[in-house]
Design a protein around this nucleic acid. Structure first.
Length: 845
RNA sequence: GCACCCGUGGUGAAAUUGGUAUACACGAUGGAUUUAGGUUCCAUUUCGGCGACGAGUAGGGGUUCGAGUCCCCUCGGGUGCACCA
């Protein structure tokens, strides 16, 4: 019989639906394992081939853990609030809730089609009021602890989404979602004090098993720097506080720079002789987009404040004050002391505006030609009074001590991280459960009134005036103050997409609990997530936000662990075949082109001529315009879910981006066909390994097991292919087949289960025990070793596995080829290792 | 600009971490089966050479009995941060 994947996959998916073998049991005596993947956003387009990569990977890991005797929680849900759904709803005049329902139904169908071992009884949907009740509840707890506040600040405004963005959502000056320009807009916004957790978010990374890329990226984003705050006095008597990481260079501070938005400038306006120029510069800076402001390599600009100066507190020197947009209002104090001799930016500015450059750290080149910025031992302080002769490292604390003694400054730590802008002017998100009362100010909704449901509205269109669509719903907006009972208005902004995903992994532990976000029992049992795999693009968004929320929940005693995730790994993207690249196209298309142009060379030349560099770039993103989008539905229809799963795991290094290849998929189908032919009919006999295959079976068990743990799925599959190749030389015994089916089962569960049944093994493969290997059975009785003479490979020899060094040497030397090479030579050194013998020789004199 | 990672056949990629480079797969070539296409099976496939042999992991240098792996330089690519004082 042929391998009828469609029938087989349907059959086993029905069994899983009915018998629920992947259900997790809270409180079981078995050791627990909580494997987590990032829950998908249910878009109208359906599942992309990118999705199965992390999903299959964690499915493989959790299936293996289950077979190893763990009580596994491997849940799935939907992160369903968000702009694309809202935009789709607006365009097609359907309610976002209906769009969400339909999309979730489609995603569910596709996920089941791929045979993932999810616990389908624990599905969560962030747009379900029973779910977002608890998202709102967490917000109220943040408010109670003073970690949620409303502030009017210049925020990132996406001109296309018509909505504010968190700093994390702005990438290179544009909206990370839609790529539209981001401008600054003063708006009153709900903010969350993530900065209060900055230090802990850095420190606690040390004990986590996160891949290094994630750790460094989070550390960079939080951006801790240590230094000092120094207070300068202006000639007006005003104090100007600056932050510096180089207090040791204070004697070299020859001017100051304020950001264009600095409040002192307004105060000083009447004193300034060039106020018109200053005001003009401020206007110019304000009109620039983020992209223009952060554009690199542009020349420094600025205006000197005429009529006001500052005094260097350490030496009394009177120094000029400038304003310039290279100083950011939002970092530090919005003002700096400039030390052009030892800072590249200050140096550049000083050269342009003719400021003094005074060397205070010796050890570099001439500071008139370039700034000397080294902070290591090469620098020795000069022209710095009591610091002279000290290294930079010693001078920093010495200066801080002096500043503190004189009341001129203090040690200070600064972070790049800003508070999280938490409101969005859109409809399809969680309502913020706050009420504005003229008398009482902002008043939280009582917890008993949660969930605060989204009202039905006629129009979800975002507005140009920056107000949420909810603001037009006067019936909903106008309410009474929970505190004084007087008239009040509801908050009309909604929460960002990142709210619901900041705690969803907790809800999986106890998804239907009406009284708490999850019971204490469930939280204690399942926390923390043992292994979380997700995209690098969430490192400074979801991953950081959810760590913050979790730490907060830990602080108020809701969750039992300070960190949500014990281990974090990341997968690479699945890219598309480039239809313009000769090497990427199908063989059929290649033949067509060769026929058309006469030769392969001519066909390649034609492609290069037509598409230029694009023809040589094998890796491109999947896009509709290139026509290289792969739909998982099509692959499952043509090859089956098991082949898709196997291929997506075989495609290459899990952490790296990989390009889809139609041809390579076929190789995986062939592999399953071969297994089918091998095991379709029952093999009888004892359930032990055959003598001929014993070593390779045990080696493969070890290899596959270890490779799954280290996410080297590609080599795990290669090892199984090697095993099947060995089986075609030495027909497998019943035990050999049993081992193969168990190893294959996490990767290709449907075919494994079918063949398991055909072989008449007991129970199901997916719930049987993971096979064990025996180190002593892994090796053959003989081994082949390499023979090197003077480091060059000269041959190989077969020696008994347990031969001692002398025996090995004897066998090596007795080889004709070797003894010939040794003629007239003197062996001056012999090195015997388990897999090779190295002889160092020289001619006999 | 700074930091980190990487560079291996025609292609995707392996290499127990310093010990026989190219496992596994794709593609290609030849053969068998087939009316044919597809499928399946067998053989070959790093390069040069009929061959013995020689060369070979971006290029150059170094350490070592031995280097894809470690060190230095150059070139090329990727990712992150990006006026953060």
């Amino acid at each position: 019989m042929k391998y009828d994947f469609a029938q087989i996959e349907k059959k086993w998916q029905d069994v899983w639906e009915r018998e629920k073998p992947f259900r997790a049991e809270t409180g079981s005596d078995k050791p627990k394992f909580y494997g987590l993947i990032e829950f998908p956003y249910p878009s109208a387009a359906g599942l992309h081939v990118g999705h199965p990569r992390p999903f299959t990977a964690m499915d493989v890991v959790t299936r293996k853990k289950r077979m190893e005797g763990y009580n596994v929680l491997f849940p799935i849900g939907f992160d369903a609030f968000g702009l694309p759904t809202e935009n789709f709803a607006i365009k097609n005049h359907v309610h976002p809730a209906k769009v969400t329902r339909d999309n979730i139904a489609n995603f569910t169908r596709q996920l089941k089609m791929l045979g993932f071992g999810f616990d389908w009884d624990r599905v969560v949907d962030t747009t379900d009021p029973d779910y977002y009740k608890w998202t709102q509840w967490i917000f109220l707890q943040l408010w109670k602890k003073g970690l949620a506040y409303k502030a009017t600040i210049p925020v990132n405004w996406c001109t296309s989404c018509k909505c504010v963005l968190a700093n994390e959502e702005v990438v290179e000056g544009v909206c990370e979602r839609c790529g539209s320009p981001v401008i600054r807009k003063e708006k009153s916004q709900w903010m969350l004090k993530i900065t209060e957790y900055a230090q802990r978010l850095i420190d606690d990374l040390d004990d986590l098993d996160f891949i290094d890329r994630v750790k460094t990226q989070q550390k960079n984003w939080i951006g801790r720097s240590t230094g000092a705050e120094v207070t300068f006095k202006a000639t007006t008597g005003d104090e100007i506080v600056v932050f510096t990481t180089r207090p040791d260079t204070l004697f070299g501070a020859t001017y100051m720079v304020l950001s264009p938005e600095h409040p002192l400038i307004k105060k000083w306006a009447p004193l300034l002789k060039n106020n018109d120029d200053v005001a003009a510069y401020q206007r110019l800076a304000a009109s620039k987009s983020d992209m223009e402001r952060t554009e690199l390599n542009k020349e420094k600009t600025g205006v000197k404040l005429e009529g006001v100066a500052a005094v260097n507190p350490i030496n009394g020197m009177v120094i000029p004050i400038f304003i310039s947009d290279y100083v950011l209002a939002t970092y530090g104090t919005g003002a700096i002391m400039a030390v052009p001799a030892h800072d590249d930016r200050d140096w550049e500015f000083a050269k342009k505006f003719g400021c003094d450059i005074i060397e205070v750290v010796a050890g570099g080149e001439d500071v008139q030609k370039a700034a000397f910025t080294a902070k290591d031992e090469t620098g020795i302080l000069v022209n710095s009074d009591f610091l002279n002769g000290l290294t930079v490292k010693d001078a920093i604390p010495a200066m801080i001590k002096r500043l503190e003694e004189k009341g001129l400054g203090k040690a200070k730590v600064n972070y790049k991280l800003r508070d999280w802008v938490f409101s969005r002017q859109r409809y399809w998100g969680e309502p913020i459960p706050m009420v504005w009362c003229e008398k009482c100010g902002w008043v939280p909704l009582p917890e008993s009134e949660l969930p605060l449901k989204l009202p039905e509205v006629d129009s979800y269109e975002p507005t140009d005036d920056g107000e949420s669509p909810l603001s037009k719903m006067t019936d909903w907006v106008n309410t009474t103050c929970p505190h004084c009972g007087g008239p009040a208005r509801r908050e009309t902004d909604t929460m960002p997409q990142w709210a619901g995903s900041s705690w969803y992994f907790l809800r999986y532990m106890d998804p239907h609990n009406p009284d708490a976000l999850a019971s204490k029992e469930a939280l204690d049992y399942w926390s923390p997530v043992d292994w979380y795999n997700g995209g690098m693009e969430h490192t400074t968004l979801h991953l950081l936000y959810s760590r913050f929320w979790h730490k907060f929940l830990y602080d108020i005693g809701v969750v039992p662990t300070p960190e949500p995730y014990a281990k974090r790994t990341s997968h690479g993207m699945i890219l598309g075949q480039n239809p313009r690249c000769f090497d990427c196209m199908s063989a059929a298309r290649q033949k067509e082109l060769i026929a058309e142009f006469g030769s392969e060379e001519a066909a390649r030349a034609h492609l290069v001529e037509q598409y230029g560099e694009m023809a040589e770039h094998p890796i491109v993103k999947m896009s509709k315009s290139l026509g290289n989008v792969v739909n998982p539905d099509d692959i499952v229809r043509d090859y089956g879910a098991d082949t898709l799963r196997l291929y997506i795991m075989f495609i290459g290094d899990f952490e790296k981006a990989a390009a889809w290849s139609d041809n390579a998929v076929k190789g995986c189908k062939r592999f399953l066909d071969r297994i089918w032919n091998l095991a379709e009919t029952r093999i009888d006999g004892p359930e032990t390994c055959s003598h001929a295959n014993e070593a390779i079976v045990h080696r493969t068990i070890k290899k596959v097991g270890e490779d799954i743990e280290s996410m080297k799925f590609n080599t795990a599959i290669a090892a199984m292919m090697g095993l099947v190749n060995a089986f075609s030389e030495n027909p497998p015994s019943r035990g050999d087949i049993r081992a193969l089916l168990l190893l294959l089962s996490p990767f290709a569960p449907h075919i494994s289960e079918e063949l398991w049944e055909k072989q008449g093994f007991e129970g199901y493969a997916s719930t049987s025990a993971w096979p064990k290997y025996d180190e002593s059975k892994m090796t053959e009785s003989e081994k082949e070793i390499a023979i090197q003479i003077n480091g060059k490979l000269k041959g190989t020899a077969v020696v008994p596995m347990d031969a001692d060094d002398d025996t090995v040497l004897e066998i090596v030397k007795s080889q004709e080829k070797i003894s010939k090479a040794l003629e007239g030579m003197e062996i001056i050194r012999t090195i015997v290792k388990s897999k090779m013998v190295s002889l160092v020789v020289k001619p006999v004199k």
